[in-house]
């Protein structure tokens, strides 16, 4: 099979730009998901009335529906009843809405893994509830749940491939355009796959490294 290198070189800038958009979306999506997940899991920990129920509903809704539909609903559905936002905002909100529930579940199981006696030990040196969360519960929950957080992070970066559906020029969208315009199917797909490898593989190594670092104190190795 002949590979059209000329074509690859000429569309490289296009893919480069798209890859940055993918990375940007993945980054903000993950960051917001972590924040949402953290807040939700703390609400669940303190069993705050009403909010606790809302979190429960949110988690089920978000986990049991596809991102594509969440995005379409946000982007096309809500605009029609008067809520408008840019494609990028919409995409990031969509990713955060999806990822937030996954992160919330990860944090929750991490927090549940902190033993009652650790909490009592923290209380007995006079820590307040907030200090207890910050200095005792979260660091330990974090160490336990780091693998899940990392998996969710990769998951969200991969899910960015879907937001092309609402006209964001990320990798999938660009590939679709390029195939449509130039019929260089093989080269376009090749660059698409390479772009994802360049993004996901280093991310995955980074997360593994981070995981080891976070877990070092408690578990050694």
């Amino acid at each position: 099979m002949d590979i059209n290198w000329q074509f690859i070189i000429s569309t490289l800038p296009l893919y480069q730009k798209a890859a940055w958009i993918t990375i940007k979306l993945g980054f903000w999506g993950t960051l917001l998901s972590l924040i949402i997940g953290l807040v939700c899991s703390i609400i669940l920990y303190f069993r705050i009335k009403i909010l606790k129920e809302l979190v429960g509903i949110y988690v089920e809704l978000s986990r049991n529906t596809p991102l594509l539909i969440q995005l379409f609903f946000l982007y096309f559905g809500l605009t029609k009843i008067g809520i408008t936002m840019s494609e990028t905002t919409c995409a990031i909100i969509g990713l955060a809405f999806l990822g937030g529930s996954y992160m919330s579940e990860a944090f929750r199981s991490g927090i549940e893994a902190v033993s009652k006696t650790q909490i009592e030990s923290g209380l007995s040196i006079g820590l307040s509830q907030m200090q207890l969360i910050r200095y005792v519960i979260l660091p330990q929950a974090f160490a336990v749940t780091m693998p899940s957080l990392a998996a969710n992070c990769i998951f969200l970066f991969k899910e960015t491939s879907i937001v092309g559906a609402i006209a964001i020029a990320e990798l999938m969208h660009v590939t679709q355009d390029v195939i449509g315009m130039y019929y260089q199917t093989f080269e376009s797909l090749f660059m698409l796959v390479v772009a994802y490898l360049i993004i996901i593989l280093p991310l995955s190594f980074l997360l593994t490294w981070l995981e080891r670092k976070v877990r070092y104190a408690e578990f050694g190795n």
């Binding site: 006696t117 650790q118 009592e120 030990s121 923290g122 007995s124 040196i125 006079g126 820590l127 307040s128 200090q131 200095y135 005792v136 660091p139 330990q140 160490a143 104190a217 408690e218």
Partner: peptide, 26 residues
Amino acid sequence: GMVFQNYELFPHMTVIENILLGPIKV
């Protein structure tokens, strides 16, 4: 001050961090 049967040191902190937490933060 209370000391438990199973020590209950905070596993993610070094010895000195365990000791300083209460006096400094509380």
